[in-house]
């Protein structure tokens, strides 16, 4: 048996995240998996139908979005010590990246981030993770337990199953002193379609040359009912807010169609969009890497290609 503690996150509406549903698929792929989901104290309602064997509520997870994660790390560490799972799984979200790493170091446990494949047998877990920006893949074997893993978004299909797990609550630890304090959270107004959930993403890169062209990309995204993304180079230049960045250190998207305009297709960018159903590239350099990843492409200047493309899409959609 492989006992797995899976830390499941919920969104503001109280729905379990896609990342958590993907993690359930990943967890169940381990041999003879016994999966316990750890959920926020106040998400116990929606957690009661998760496709797992058991649910444990830890109230500090609900407050973890204060971004400092001290209490939740302490509570999860205590839970791991008392339940001694073989594997602890997080999504590689902001929460999962930080809490997963803190937990592993606090417990002197093995840690592997951003896994895209996991397998396990006989007390050891093997993982595959992209390294060098996605230029290479590394396979690791972890023989010690617990192994703390974070999973790359989109690497596993979200489970469609439901279940009726037993639910119990884990008492929080003594209140931990919050040493760094969050005084304010400033969030960008939500776009009509969230980038991570969009079926169409239109992304722009350094080759756009400035902020203005993003309005054409926004028009195209609106016609398609999608969202606007960007390369890190475009964000770093200040042409668009960093919350639009797609890639290894930005957001992971997996739309039906990903349209990359004037983006060279560096491995770190592709890390955020390679699970798209179809990548469409418009780039003036036929040798650029994006054409190795794209299904359809036009070699040309975006200033000439994009207006007629937008007009035709508009007609087709009318």
């Amino acid at each position: 048996m492989t006992s797995i503690l899976l830390v499941a996150e919920f969104d503001e509406q109280g729905d379990v995240t896609q990342g958590a549903l993907q993690a359930i698929t990943a967890a169940k792929s381990l041999s003879d998996a016994q999966v316990t989901a750890v959920v926020a104290g106040d998400a116990s309602g929606s957690a009661s139908s998760l496709a797992v064997d058991g649910v444990v509520t830890v109230s500090a997870i609900a407050a973890a979005d204060n971004g400092i994660f001290e209490q939740v790390t302490a509570d999860l560490a205590a839970l791991v010590v008392s339940s001694s799972p073989d594997v602890v799984i997080f999504s590689k979200s902001d929460f999962g990246s930080v809490v997963g790493a803190r937990l592993a170091f606090r417990l002197d446990a093995a840690l592997a981030a951003d896994c895209i494949e996991i397998s396990g047998s006989g007390g050891s877990v093997s993982v595959t993770r992209p390294v060098y920006g996605g230029s290479a893949l590394a396979e690791f074997e972890i023989a010690s337990s617990p192994a703390v893993l974070t999973l790359r978004a989109g690497a596993f299909e979200p489970t469609g199953d439901t279940g009726s797990p037993s639910v119990e609550s884990h008492d929080g630890e003594a209140t931990v002193e919050q040493r760094a304090l969050v005084s304010d959270t400033v969030a960008e107004a939500h776009e009509s379609v969230r980038l991570e959930d969009a079926d169409f993403v239109v992304s722009g890169g350094r080759g756009l040359g400035g902020p203005e062209p993003f309005s054409v990309l926004t028009d195209l995204a609106n016609v398609l009912g999608g969202a606007v993304g960007a390369s890190r180079a475009a964000c770093d230049a200040g042409w668009i807010d960093h919350s639009h960045q797609v890639g290894l250190t930005g957001k992971t998207v997996s739309p039906d169609v990903y349209i990359a305009v004037a983006i060279s297709g560096a491995s770190q960018h592709m890390a955020g969009c390679s699970s798209s159903r179809a990548i469409v590239a418009i780039n003036k350099d036929g040798d650029s890497n994006i054409f190795k990843e794209a299904r359809f492409g036009v070699v040309g200047d975006w200033e000439k290609v994009l207006p007629s493309f937008l007009a035709t899409v508009r007609d087709l959609k009318a």
Partner: peptide
């Protein structure tokens, strides 16, 4: 944070 920032 994913859609903005926190003051800490």
């Amino acid at each position: 944070i994913p859609d903005g920032y926190q003051v800490v």
